[in-house]
Amino acid sequence: MAASTFDEIRGIASDILGVPAESLNASSSPDTIESWDSVQHLNLVLALEEKFGLQLSPEEIEQMKNLGETAKLIEAKLQAAPR
């Protein structure tokens, strides 16, 4: 289950950031991906909210330091309120 959520998030990030999914891993972050700026960060948040049917608070958005952290956060939220 964990792998599939991460894969799904990686696919979404690939669409939003315009980079191949294969080039993304758990440590991919705004520091390692050039196109990952604040505008794309908002777009990523919106795409995640829409795909997983949840809402992220400003504090949670802060926690999204890299894709691995993002996946952990989403999984925790999904477990608390399964889609």
Partner: peptide, 18 residues
């Protein structure tokens, strides 16, 4: 509405409704 996105990014519309 998504009040948090409004306050954070001046985006009043929730992700689902864009």
């Amino acid at each position: 509405h998504d009040e948090r996105k409004w306050l954070m990014a001046r985006l009043p519309i929730a992700a689902d409704h864009l």
